[in-house]
Amino acid sequence: MDVKIFPESEERKLTAVIYGDIDHHTAKFIRGEIDAAIREHNPCILVLDFRFVTFMDSSGIGLVMGRYKIIHELGGEVLTANPPPYIRRVMQLAGLHRLSRIISCPTPEEIPRGGSDIESSDTIAAEKQLTQENK
């Protein structure tokens, strides 16, 4: 399990890419890493990227809810990005989309060097589907 942090200071956006299993045991560490980055960068938008999450139980819901509280108090927004289908089911069961919009977006590491902002049609299609589900 690991967390990688990608700050984008111009937009006051912070992306945390989470790797591996999220359970009660690992949540402590993940929370610590993200909260340290929040204190350092003071973001308006926090993106929690679940693309590489291999397992998640309700501890992951607690993790998102906890970050929501912190960021909401700072007047910002938390986005939940790229959850694999099974993890999306846990999130929907919890009604998490009411606190944090579920989006589909490129994961920072994947952006090719010299970065283009053009989204693939795949991403756009997935985004459309999510917009439906978020309603």
Binding site: R31, D57, S58, S59, I61, G62, M65, G66, A94
Partner: peptide, 10 residues
């Protein structure tokens, strides 16, 4: 402790 109260629901 950031428990969501969703364990049994899951």
């Amino acid at each position: 402790e950031e428990r969501a109260g969703l364990g049994f629901a899951v």
